[in-house]
Design a binder for these strands. Structure first.
Lengths: 342, 342
DNA sequence: TTGAAAGCGCTAACAG
DNA sequence: CTGTTAGCGCTTTCAA
């Protein structure tokens, strides 16, 4: 441990080979290569000039010593930070117990790995805006991915993170957005219902504060409006439990409903289970659609719209890491997935 | 941007209040509190002595300036690292496209957040042991969580990480393990099958190199051996596709099989779909069990055993972060979840 | 109890 | 093209 082997290079210069214990530092590499630390830094970081000879010697030395740059030190001097913060807005910390968030975090971690960056995830209470400010005050934060955020939160993103923040959901003048095309996905589902002869179409919406959910609602309203049909809306919250209750409410208020559009697959699954419990046939009496195409959807033959969460998160994290101008808005298409429920 | 307000404290000493831009550093806090940087460091880090007065003034100043310690700088000097590495062993990078891994990463990120640490995830090819060595050579790596690892890989964990590495799966003399009680879970399932009158019980196993999967197989063998029954094993790989093929193989080799134990829910679901396709009734003709209790399991009424992945990952990450002696082995119980498939 | 001073490992001007 | 020189922000001896 800490054992070193002192040897001699052909050039008759002393070098040190670390055999165990302390990982090699840039100094070790420079010494072994017989160049200055700056030169070693230049070739390792790939920045600045270096003669082919120097390049070669440094590379060899680094290889032999198993040199790996210390990300923390590098981040300190460059001021770039060492981790990507995934901040998920919501009313309770339970928002983090969600496979959607899992996928975002995991995808982000995968993108960050080669850059030597880590990822952390935090719940952002909607009513405690100070937290975002505190979290982003840590210079170790290299970038920010906001999930399900609000405009209020968006405005709190500090200047330091301009260009290093992306929102999965709505964006702002300073924070670009990467998102799923809720309107397109929901629209195609509503059109499918209409094409199937449904005319009394209700919708179980998401929480009002969530803009992306609202886009689905707007699409639903627009389409029904265009067709001269009245809307039937019940507020939900993405959960199956709320979907159940909502199904009851829909049928109580509008007994002749022949289709229910759920804001999410979980919602739709809740709706279906309640409907079946009440002996309403799906899709014969009432057609039901979801949104997201989670694994459960295919198993339960739920008609829904696709939502490539992993690809979206990967794009978001990549945008944060790559420091080049980003489009204000990147929309991933959502395709209808027609199965048996509608 | 970068605007500052110069004011005067009651003690008539100059201080600087950052109103925007550059986050406050420890120097700013010290200056504002009228103490040396060392003193400020002691009270902020909570290490070493400080008079109540100093403590108070530093706290106030830090609060007012919205001071947040720079994790990277701290890690650099303390040598503690800035991120937790989740390394997932497997034969292809696709092992990372798995909700199991997502949950582990996400849970780890949650545990790390308050410590100012990030998380990265890496695929560890079984045949490229050098990668682990290279990855862990980065001093920025504060800790290691190995997933589905092998003894060979375990032996490569460097001394520097001793006490800062945990394995979800098998452990070693130097790396403690946190795991699910596969044997217990599988055992209770096999007993349930036996109690239900099944006597010709086959098993679709996991890949041979995976020790945790092997524990299930051992339990199956032991129980059948104790009952004087012959074993019927087909090698699987946790996938539904392989489960399908395995079901075919089982029935070809042992046509009178009356129960199939799947190494995972995905495997079992694959088995069931193949069985149904071949007009074999489940559970009437052949009972099928899984392992993990994924969301799909309840939707498909699959009998299985529970697997609290989130809790396991949280425990693992916590052990890595808390620097106290750990038990060599922590086993989380797996309870049978009886549904319709067996 | 406190402050001065010396780095942690690396990058980035700036002269040579 | 290369080496010298300053730090990045923080912790930690060591004296005072």
């Amino acid at each position: 441990m800490g054992a070193r082997t002192i040897g001699r290079m052909s050039g008759n210069r002393e070098y040190i080979m670390i055999t165990a214990g302390r990982p090699a530092t840039l100094d070790d590499v420079a010494r072994a290569a017989g160049v200055s630390r700056s030169t070693a830094s230049r070739v390792i970081a790939g920045t600045g000039f270096a003669s082919p000879v120097a390049r070669e010697r440094v590379r060899t030395a680094a290889d032999r010593l198993g040199y790996v740059p210390n990300t923390a030190a590098r981040a300190l001097v460059r001021g770039g930070g060492v981790r990507l913060l995934v901040a998920v807005a919501g009313t309770s910390p339970a928002v983090l117990d969600d496979s959607y968030v899992d996928q975002v975090v995991s995808a982000a971690a995968r993108v960050c790995a080669p850059h030597g960056l880590g990822v952390t995830v935090q719940w952002l209470p909607l009513d405690a805006p100070g937290l975002l400010t505190r979290l982003t005050a840590d210079r170790a934060v290299a970038g920010l991915v906001l999930v399900n955020t609000t405009s209020a939160l968006l405005d709190l993103v500090p200047l330091r993170l301009r260009g290093r923040a992306v929102s999965i959901g709505i964006g702002s003048a300073t924070v670009p957005s990467v998102d799923i095309d809720n309107a397109g996905g929901t629209g195609s589902l509503v059109r499918h219902l209409y094409a199937g002869g449904r005319r009394r179409i209700a919708m179980v919406t998401g929480p009002r504060w969530l803009a992306c959910a609202d886009r689905s609602v707007q699409a639903y309203r627009r389409l029904l409006g265009d067709a001269g049909l009245p809307t039937r809306e019940v507020v939900g919250d993405f959960s199956a439990a709320r979907g159940r209750a909502a199904a009851r409410e829909v049928l109580r208020r509008w007994p002749d409903t022949d289709a229910i559009v759920g804001i999410s697959d979980a919602t739709a699954l809740g709706v279906i289970s309640q409907l079946r419990a009440d002996s309403v046939r799906v899709p014969d009496d009432v057609a039901v659609t979801g949104f997201d195409d989670i694994p459960l959807a295919s198993a339960t033959a739920l008609t829904t719209a696709s939502h490539p969460v992993r690809r979206i998160a990967t794009a978001a994290a990549t945008m944060v890491l790559e420091q080049r101008p980003k489009p204000d808005r990147t929309l991933f298409p959502s395709a209808p997935v027609l199965r048996e429920s509608a």
